[in-house]
Design a protein around this nucleic acid. Structure first.
Lengths: 152, 152
DNA sequence: CTGTGTGCAAACATTTTGCAAGCAG
DNA sequence: CTGCTTGCAAAATGTTTGCACACAG
C-alpha cells in the first residue's frame, strides 16, 4: 500500500505505478499508462465517461474501451493513487491523489468543484472517530452551495 | 419550503406532510402515508429497496410498488422531510430529517452507521464557504473506518 | 368528474462480467 | 509460451418513464 503520492512528478508517479503493478503480478500496458497520463495532465474531476472520451481523443490509435477505464480507475482507487467522490445517482467523479489532502465545495447550480484544505476539521474528525472507537481509514466532506458566479 | 422538521411527533409530521401536499396540488394517498409512517417508525438508514420491502411487510394489502417508494422518497427529499447519503455506485440511503442535524461514521467492514453531531465542524464549514463566496445550502460529511466490533 | 397517483413493464444509465483474441513478460 | 489484459457484447444493478386503470378531492 502506497502511503502518500503527494506532489510527485509524472515520472515519479509512473514509477510508483509500475512498482505497484509488479507487486501485484499485473502488467504494464499502454492503456493503463494512457489513462494515468491523462489523469495527470488534467487535474480535474472526471466521470469514467468523461475520462474515457478524453483518452480516446488523446490516444485515438489505442482504441481504449470504457471497460478498461473503469477497471483502471478501480485499480487506481484501490491502491490509493486516485480517489473518487460520489454524486448520488449521478455517479462518481475521480481525481488523482497526487495533491495534498483536500475536500470539496460543490456548486449545485453549475456543478463547479472548488478544493479546500482545513487542518482543524481534520483534527476534529480524528477526535470524533476516537470517541466512537472507530479506526478511521478515510473520510468524505462535501459542502454544497451556490458559487459566486451563480448567485448573480 | 419547510424550514425544520426536527423533533416532531408523528401527528405533527403527518400534518406538515399534508400541508405540503396540498400546497403542491398533490394528493394524500395511503401509500404515501405508509411510506412516511414506516420511515418514522424505523429511525434507520434505508435504501429504496430496503424500505420497499419493509413497507410491503407492514402493509401487505397495499401492494405498494417500488416505483412509488422511489417517487415518494424523491418527493420527501425535495421538500426537506427526508435526506439521503450516497454510497458511490452502491446507491443511496435515506432517513427522515426529523432529527437534529448530524453526520455519519460508517464502518467499511459491516456497513454499520453511527450518527454524531459537532458544532465546531459546522462552524468551520460556514467559515470555509464564506471564504470561497459560496452560499451554503447543504453539506455531507462521512467518516469511514472500522468500528469497534469489526476491529476484533 | 377531473386530474393526480398507482403498479406494471419497459426503458434507461451506469457499472460489471464472460469470453475469445492479443500482447507483456 | 503463459496467463494477464483487452474490447466487445451481454448481464447486472439501480432508477426513471409510459401507460392504462384507480382513486382522492
Amino acid at each position: 500500500m502506497i502511503k502518500s503520492i503527494e506532489n510527485l512528478s509524472y515520472e515519479e508517479l509512473l514509477e510508483k505505478f509500475k512498482v505497484l503493478l509488479k507487486a501485484n503480478n499485473l502488467k504494464y500496458t499502454t492503456q493503463r499508462e494512457a489513462i494515468l497520463k491523462t489523469l495527470y495532465d488534467h487535474p480535474d474531476h472526471f466521470t469514467p465517461e468523461n475520462l474515457y472520451m478524453l483518452v480516446k481523443e488523446n490516444y485515438p490509435d489505442l482504441n481504449t474501451g470504457i471497460t478498461t477505464v473503469y477497471r483502471t480507475l478501480n485499480l487506481l482507487e484501490e491502491n490509493n493513487i486516485a480517489t473518487s467522490i460520489s454524486f448520488g445517482s449521478a455517479g462518481k467523479k475521480f481525481e488523482l491523489g497526487n495533491k495534498p489532502h483536500h475536500d470539496h465545495l460543490i456548486c449545485e447550480e453549475c456543478g463547479d468543484i472548488v478544493e479546500f484544505e482545513n487542518d482543524e476539521i481534520e483534527k476534529l474528525q480524528d477526535k470524533i472517530a476516537k470517541m466512537h472507537d472507530f479506526k478511521l481509514t478515510n473520510h468524505l466532506m462535501q459542502l454544497y452551495g451556490i458559487c459566486k458566479k451563480c448567485q448573480d
